Amino acid sequence: MNLKLFKMLFIIIFIASTSTFSYCENLPKYGVFLNISEDDLYKLYNYYIVVIDAQNFSKKAINVLKSKGITVYSYLNIGSIENFRPYYNNFKNIILKNYENWEEEYWIDISNKKWHDFIINTLAKSLIDKGIDGFFIDNTDVYYYNESEQIFYGVSELLKDLKKYNKDVIINGGDFFIDKYYKRYKSVNNILNGINQESVFSSIDFKNNKLISQTKETNSYYKEHLKKYKHLGIKIYITEYTTNKLLIQKIKYYCIKNGYHYYISDSIELDI
């Protein structure tokens, strides 16, 4: 290839990539902010879809976000319990085991009827009453760590009951459970509307407290997993943890190409 032709190709590719990422800036901005307070509310105004822990927000604050056209999803942890929650002492007797890398968190027996009723009729209802648009469900991975029929049933029934509120249900992770459910019932539409997958391209080295790149094997696995459910009409969201500029561009390009919402955080704390 002669130098003149190479320069022309470079210019074409540069213009195309620039216009792509310019277009990206006009897409709805998605953000996951689990460690912020109402004092930081104004920082969310330039997002169109936000995930917050609405247990820490008033109905008034959520209404402010919604008045600005922002879709508000609330974090809801159904498969584990944190020791800072006000209801921790009521359920510590059904803890299964410690949660690796998170000292304040414990896997819980999701099949327990008392836990199910609390999540559905007390906690979820209180969030609905605040005006949220849907739930961002965490730790259905409890089934990965306890692959029993009663845990599978507990996760399934809880998700189905959440769907009865006629609000969006986005499952964070949960690939093992989702695949098992789909294999058994040939559909996931009665338990979720969307999937948020963390760390498709990035990863967290907890031992050395570093943000690193994901392995090729895991990256490929997650890509195929998300592709499968996108083809079934499920909305796909991605959350990444990195400060690597080249990796950030790679994530953006992939998400734009596939029509996925994405949020890239420089901290695992998900603050702002």
Rank of each mutant, 00 (worst) to 15 (best):
A61I: 07
I170D: 05
D141S: 14
K7A: 13
T242V: 11
L9V: 09
E269G: 03
N244E: 14
D39W: 00
V50G: 07
C24I: 06
N46I: 01
I94C: 10
E103D: 14
K113N: 12
I151P: 07
F201S: 10
L270R: 11
I78T: 07
G173L: 01
K227T: 12
F91Y: 14
S187F: 00
K68F: 02
L41G: 10
K160M: 15
V200D: 08
W102T: 06
I78A: 01
S220V: 11
E149M: 02
I128M: 02
L96K: 13
G174N: 01
D40K: 15
Y48E: 15
Y143I: 00
V72Y: 07
T243D: 13
I36N: 10
Y144Q: 00
K60S: 14
E240T: 08
I94F: 08
I132S: 05
S126V: 01
V169T: 12
K245A: 10
D168N: 14
L226S: 07
K235T: 13
V155P: 01
I70C: 04
I94R: 06
I151W: 03
I137S: 04
N193K: 07
K235F: 02
K230E: 02
D109H: 01
K97W: 00
V188E: 03
Y253N: 14
F206M: 06
I36S: 10
I234L: 09
F6G: 00
K29H: 13
L158C: 11
H261E: 12
N46T: 12
K228A: 05
I11C: 02
K223W: 00
I170A: 11
D168Y: 10
V64H: 09
S156V: 01
I94P: 05
M8I: 15
